[in-house]
Amino acid sequence: KHICAICGDRSSGKHYGVYSCEGCKGFFKRTVRKDLTYTCRDNKDCLIDKRQRNRCQYCRYQKCLAMGMKREAVQEE
């Protein structure tokens, strides 16, 4: 069993190059498709875990990228 590289929830498989849960997969897809931009209200180092993953979209998206999620993979779907 794999866990989500972004928030630690149960992974549903590899999405956009990274083991991730449905929540983070959908979040990344929406962000890329709609070309959304986020801002962090703190120091750009918010904790992203299962409980708090919805608290800061900026940091969640940065963690998706840092863990290796690929924007191109969304476009190719």
Score class of each variant (00 low, 15 high):
Lys1Met: 06
Lys1His: 03
Lys1Ile: 04
Lys1Thr: 02
Lys1Arg: 03
Lys1Ser: 02
Lys1Phe: 03
Lys1Gly: 03
His2Pro: 02
His2Leu: 08
His2Met: 15
His2Lys: 15
His2Glu: 15
His2Asp: 15
Ile3Arg: 03
Ile3Ser: 04
Ile3Lys: 04
Ile3His: 12
Ile3Asp: 07
Ile3Val: 02
Ile3Tyr: 07
Cys4Thr: 01
Cys4Asp: 01
Cys4Gly: 00
Cys4Leu: 00
Cys4Phe: 00
Ala5Trp: 13
Ala5Gly: 08
Ala5Pro: 06
Ala5Phe: 15
Ile6Pro: 01
Ile6Glu: 01
Ile6Met: 08
Ile6Gly: 02
Ile6Val: 09
Ile6Ser: 02
Cys7Pro: 00
Cys7Lys: 00
Cys7Trp: 00
Cys7Thr: 00
Cys7Leu: 00
Gly8Val: 03
Gly8Cys: 09
Gly8Asn: 09
Gly8Lys: 07
Gly8Gln: 14
Gly8Pro: 03
Asp9Leu: 01
Asp9Asn: 07
Asp9Tyr: 04
Asp9Ala: 05
Asp9Gln: 13
Arg10Ser: 07
Arg10Cys: 07
Arg10Tyr: 09
Ser11Met: 05
Ser11Leu: 04
Ser11Phe: 05
Ser11Asp: 10
Ser11Arg: 04
Ser11Gln: 05
Ser12Asp: 11
Ser12Lys: 15
Gly13Glu: 15
Gly13Leu: 06
Gly13Gln: 10
Gly13His: 13
Lys14Trp: 10
Lys14Arg: 05
Lys14Ile: 05
Lys14Phe: 12
Lys14Gly: 11
His15Ser: 03
His15Asn: 03
His15Cys: 06
His15Ala: 04
His15Asp: 06
His15Pro: 08
Tyr16Leu: 08
Tyr16Met: 11
Tyr16Ser: 12
Gly17Glu: 11
Gly17Pro: 03
Gly17Tyr: 05
Gly17Ile: 03
Gly17Phe: 05
Gly17Lys: 06
Val18Ile: 04
Val18Tyr: 03
Val18His: 02
Val18Thr: 02
Tyr19Glu: 07
Tyr19Lys: 08
Tyr19Thr: 06
Tyr19Leu: 08
Tyr19Cys: 04
Ser20Lys: 02
Ser20Asn: 13
Ser20Arg: 01
Ser20Pro: 05
Cys21Asn: 01
Cys21Arg: 01
Cys21Glu: 01
Cys21Pro: 00
Cys21Gly: 00
Glu22Pro: 08
Glu22Gly: 13
Glu22Val: 07
Glu22Leu: 03
Glu22Arg: 11
Glu22Trp: 10
Glu22His: 05
Gly23Thr: 03
Gly23Cys: 03
Gly23Asn: 03
Gly23Leu: 02
Gly23Tyr: 02
Cys24Glu: 01
Cys24Ala: 00
Cys24Ile: 00
Gly26Ile: 04
Gly26Trp: 07
Gly26Lys: 12
Gly26Tyr: 06
Gly26Leu: 04
Gly26Ala: 11
Phe28Ser: 01
Phe28Thr: 00
Phe28Tyr: 04
Phe28His: 02
Phe28Asn: 01
Phe28Trp: 09
Phe28Gln: 01
Lys29Phe: 08
Lys29Gln: 07
Lys29Trp: 11
Arg30His: 03
Arg30Val: 02
Arg30Asp: 10
Arg30Phe: 02
Arg30Gln: 04
Arg30Ile: 02
Thr31Ala: 09
Thr31Trp: 08
Thr31Met: 11
Thr31Gln: 06
Thr31Lys: 03
Val32Cys: 02
Val32Asp: 12
Val32Ala: 10
Arg33Leu: 05
Arg33Ala: 14
Arg33Tyr: 04
Arg33Asp: 11
Arg33Gly: 10
Arg33Ile: 11
Arg33Val: 12
Arg33Glu: 14
Asp35Val: 15
Asp35Asn: 04
Asp35Gly: 09
Leu36Pro: 06
Leu36Ser: 10
Leu36Ala: 13
Leu36Asn: 09
Leu36Met: 07
Thr37Asn: 11
Thr37Gln: 15
Thr37Ile: 10
Thr37Pro: 15
Tyr38Glu: 06
Tyr38Gly: 08
Tyr38Gln: 08
Tyr38Arg: 05
Thr39Lys: 13
Thr39Ser: 13
Thr39Arg: 12
Thr39Pro: 13
Thr39Glu: 14
Cys40Met: 01
Cys40Ala: 01
Cys40Asn: 01
Cys40Tyr: 01
Cys40Leu: 02
Arg41Lys: 13
Arg41Pro: 15
Arg41Met: 12
Arg41Leu: 05
Asp42Gly: 15
Asn43Leu: 10
Asn43Arg: 11
Asn43Ala: 12
Asn43Cys: 05
Asn43Glu: 14
Asn43His: 15
Asn43Phe: 06
Lys44Pro: 09
Lys44Ser: 10
Asp45His: 06
Asp45Lys: 15
Asp45Ile: 04
Asp45Trp: 09
Asp45Glu: 14
Cys46Asp: 08
Leu47Glu: 11
Leu47Phe: 12
Leu47Asn: 05
Leu47Val: 10
Ile48His: 15
Ile48Thr: 11
Ile48Trp: 12
Ile48Pro: 10
Ile48Val: 14
Ile48Leu: 12
Asp49Leu: 05
Asp49Gln: 13
Asp49Tyr: 03
Asp49Ser: 08
Lys50Met: 14
Lys50Tyr: 05
Lys50Phe: 10
Lys50Glu: 06
Lys50Ile: 09
Lys50Asp: 13
Arg51Glu: 11
Arg51Pro: 14
Arg51Gln: 10
Arg51Gly: 12
Arg51Ser: 12
Arg51Ile: 11
Arg51His: 07
Arg51Ala: 12
Arg53Glu: 15
Arg53Ser: 06
Arg53Ala: 10
Arg53Lys: 12
Arg53Gln: 09
Arg53His: 12
Cys56Arg: 10
Gln57Val: 08
Gln57Cys: 08
Gln57Met: 02
Gln57Trp: 09
Tyr58Ala: 10
Tyr58Trp: 13
Tyr58Asp: 14
Cys59Trp: 02
Cys59Met: 00
Cys59Ser: 01
Tyr61Asn: 15
Leu65Gln: 13
Ala66His: 14
Ala66Asp: 13
Ala66Val: 13
Met67Phe: 10
Met67Thr: 11
Met67Tyr: 10
Met67Lys: 12
Met67Asp: 08
Gly68Met: 03
Gly68Ser: 05
Gly68Cys: 04
Gly68Leu: 02
Gly68His: 05
Met69Tyr: 11
Met69Ala: 06
Met69Gly: 04
Met69Ser: 03
Met69Lys: 02
Lys70Cys: 06
Lys70Ile: 13
Lys70Thr: 09
Lys70Ala: 10
Lys70Val: 14
Arg71Met: 10
Arg71Gly: 11
Arg71Lys: 14
Arg71Glu: 11
Arg71Pro: 11
Glu72Thr: 09
Glu72Ser: 13
Glu72Gln: 08
Glu72Ile: 14
Glu72Gly: 05
Glu72Cys: 07
Ala73Gly: 10
Ala73Tyr: 07
Ala73Glu: 10
Ala73Cys: 14
Ala73Ser: 11
Val74Cys: 12
Val74Thr: 11
Gln75Cys: 13
Gln75Tyr: 05
Gln75Ala: 07
Gln75His: 07
Gln75Ser: 11
Gln75Asn: 07
Glu76Met: 08
Glu76Lys: 05
Glu76Ser: 08
Glu77Tyr: 13
Glu77Phe: 15
Glu77Lys: 12
Glu77Val: 11
Glu77Ser: 10
